[in-house]
Design a protein around this nucleic acid. Structure first.
Lengths: 208, 208
DNA sequence: AACTATTTGTACCAAATAGTACAAAAATAA
DNA sequence: TTATTTTTGTACTATTTGGTACAAATAGTT
């Protein structure tokens, strides 16, 4: 088949011997990540992945080795994207507004997609716990990275005076994250708009 | 096979024509409920169920019709048990202490089982959303029943003066439930004991 | 053009899944 | 005893699962 589309491998890598890949690895990975994010690990079959990644089975296994390894790379990509997102947001609007923006972002998913995708890490943590030890371990590790990021944002906000509370940053960020985690569950369970609004209000109180 | 054990069907129902059941329906249902609770719906196979219920496949389908219908009855049983539990606790120690006891109960699961089973409804809500519409609907319904129960407890606590806040009961119970939901997720993700303690503290503050 | 390295398309596989078919077993009713 | 009704044990089935085998296709290298 002829190349009708340029892709990253054609641009970044100098062409080596052998038939060239007809798909872009990063693009395929990103597509897989979004599918996992919305449907969860077990509820995503290989066929689902092949379709959304637009590749064939043999290419899949040649490039990603297995479903589990692909997921591992997706989690990695997710953390990478998310932290970059938070960092640029932090530069633009400051740490406290960044934390608040993450909340509204989560809630806006509701109106946009009719459901809340929540956090890929949280979702898959529930799923792979006790079933996929390798993944479980990785999820816990990445989760801590997020935890640290939130704590860093809170500390910065305290230094800037955006947060006046003198509580330990780890405690503030912990309460923030816990409320946010609860929010995902609560919204999914069909909470009223009134309750959702109040939960956002309680989040603001935590960051005062 | 001879009856070696008496069971509820032998006691409650007058024996009718035909070979009598060799198992107790409620016992089997309860066993299934606990397994679902710990492992989730999809991650529980029919063979798992047959083993834990100690019945054979044909008895299973003759009595429970399908895996989905069994789960539906398990959710029902769960709500029944839970509400009875909360009601008797309320009579014993009052509404506010009941709400606090539910929290410590959740956390104690950690030490007891090394993991947090959390709430069967919340767990299965995440799982069956968009995949099993029938179950999804039932879960939302039962979830509201719990919501109402919490609201009732808060109202009673306000009347008794155990809760002094004059916020709307639905708001207080909503914040309470959201924090509790978050707690299950946060603990599972490997939160520090210090954070867990503080989250319990924040729950107490909500009920002040 | 011949050779080598890599990717792709198709057919296949073994295991697990939820669910059925049906005869044998165990009880009551006649 | 015989007929009827219900449960139970075993074998089977169709589908889906993640994963392989392998030849054909497509590129660079000599």
């Amino acid at each position: 088949m002829y190349h009708l589309v340029y892709n990253a491998s054609m641009i970044n890598k100098t062409q080596t011997r052998g038939r060239p890949k007809e798909f872009d690895e990063t693009e395929a990975l990103t597509a897989a990540m979004h599918y996992f994010w919305e449907h969860g690990y077990d509820n995503t079959s290989l066929d689902n992945l092949l379709e959304v990644m637009s590749i064939k089975k043999s290419s899949f296994y040649a490039t990603f080795k297995s479903k589990e390894e692909l997921f591992s790379r997706c989690i990695d990509l997710y953390r990478q994207h998310s932290l970059e997102f938070l960092n640029t947001l932090n530069k633009d609007i400051g740490p406290k507004q960044t934390l608040l923006a993450l909340t509204t972002h989560t809630i806006n998913e509701l109106e946009e997609f009719g459901k809340v995708k929540g956090c890929l890490l949280i979702n898959s943590g529930q799923e792979c716990y006790n079933k996929y030890p390798q993944l479980s371990q990785q999820v816990t590790k990445e989760f801590n990275t997020f935890n640290n990021m939130f704590e860093k944002l809170v500390k910065e906000a305290q230094v800037l005076g955006e947060i006046r509370s003198t509580k330990k940053a780890s405690i503030i960020s912990g309460r923030y994250m816990n409320t946010l985690n609860g929010l995902v569950v609560t919204i999914q369970a069909g909470a009223s708009p009134e309750l959702i609004n109040d939960l956002v209000e309680s989040l603001k109180e935590i960051l005062e």
